[in-house]
Amino acid sequence: MIYAFDTYYYENYAKTICIAFENWTSENESFVYSENTQISYDYESGAFYKRELPCILSLLKKIELKDNDLIIVDGYVTLDNSGKIGLGGYLYESLNKKYPVIGIAKNGFVSEDSERRTVLRGESKTPLFLTSIGIDIDEIKIQVEKMHGNFRIPTLLKKLDKLTREKDELNEIN
């Protein structure tokens, strides 16, 4: 199973969604997991993971990961050639390096990273930026190119983004 995570921040809570799907070419999700949590860290430039990692780890408590499962985050796994890690790298470490983590970012990052790949999908001239840990990045590039959808953002990742931005009617923290 592939589990894709994203978090959106509202005034008084964070909403994290996970869409689970069977394989890279899936058109529809198998499961959707959702959780609203208190925001535990203010935004800190250069330390995005401090804000989002607790949200993902909390939602992961509702999911029984199995061998060969993959995790996708909206962001970066690695940040540069010196070994600096991003959200996905910290998630990988938090999961005892047991599950491969793939970062699919919509925006570029300024530092050089020889393990970063770009993917152009559909007719878009704007790439997606891929990083990974625990799995070969060149294989991931091929898989992301094959993901369902005719546009830059694959169908299920676009749905994930949409779901995180849909404000809950009650605005409660679960």
Rank of each mutant, 00 (worst) to 15 (best):
R165F: 09
S30N: 12
F31Y: 14
C18R: 06
D6P: 01
K159Y: 13
S58W: 09
I153A: 04
D138K: 14
S26K: 13
I140H: 13
D168H: 03
R116A: 13
K106F: 13
P54M: 07
D80I: 10
V144I: 11
P154V: 00
I140S: 11
K125Y: 06
E27N: 15
N81H: 03
D6T: 08
Y49R: 15
I153H: 03
S58F: 12
L157K: 06
N174I: 07
A4M: 08
F48I: 15
L95V: 10
N12P: 03
T131Y: 09
N81C: 00
T25W: 00
I56W: 01
F129W: 12
Y99W: 03
A47S: 12
V110N: 14
K61I: 00
F21M: 07
A14F: 03
C18S: 04
D69Q: 02
D42V: 03
L170I: 13
N12D: 08
S111G: 11
P100E: 03
Y3V: 02
E93Y: 08
S132T: 08
L156A: 09
F5Y: 07
I135R: 03
Y76I: 11
I102L: 02
L57F: 04
T131M: 11
E27F: 10
I19E: 02
S94E: 14
L65G: 02
F129D: 00
E169V: 13
G83R: 12
L87R: 07
I102V: 09
L91T: 07
G149F: 09
K62D: 12
S111I: 08
N150A: 05
I17C: 12
A105G: 05
K98Q: 11
Q143G: 06
E115V: 02
L170H: 08
K97H: 04
C55E: 05
A4P: 01
G89C: 11
I71H: 07
G122A: 08
L156S: 02
E11G: 00
S132N: 06
V144A: 15
Y41D: 06
D6A: 01
A14C: 07
R152P: 10
D168Q: 08
Q143C: 14
G83E: 12
N171W: 07
L87E: 14
I140W: 13
L65I: 06
K61S: 01
F21Y: 14
E115P: 04
G46S: 11
K62N: 07
Y10P: 13
A14T: 04
V32D: 12
N36C: 13
S40Q: 09
V144F: 13
K50D: 06
F151M: 10
Y49T: 05
D161W: 08
L160W: 06
I173K: 12
V110Y: 15
C18W: 10
F151E: 15
I135P: 15
E44M: 12
A47T: 12
K50I: 06
D168L: 10
E64F: 06
S124D: 04
N150W: 14
D6I: 04
T78N: 12
F151T: 15
Q38W: 04
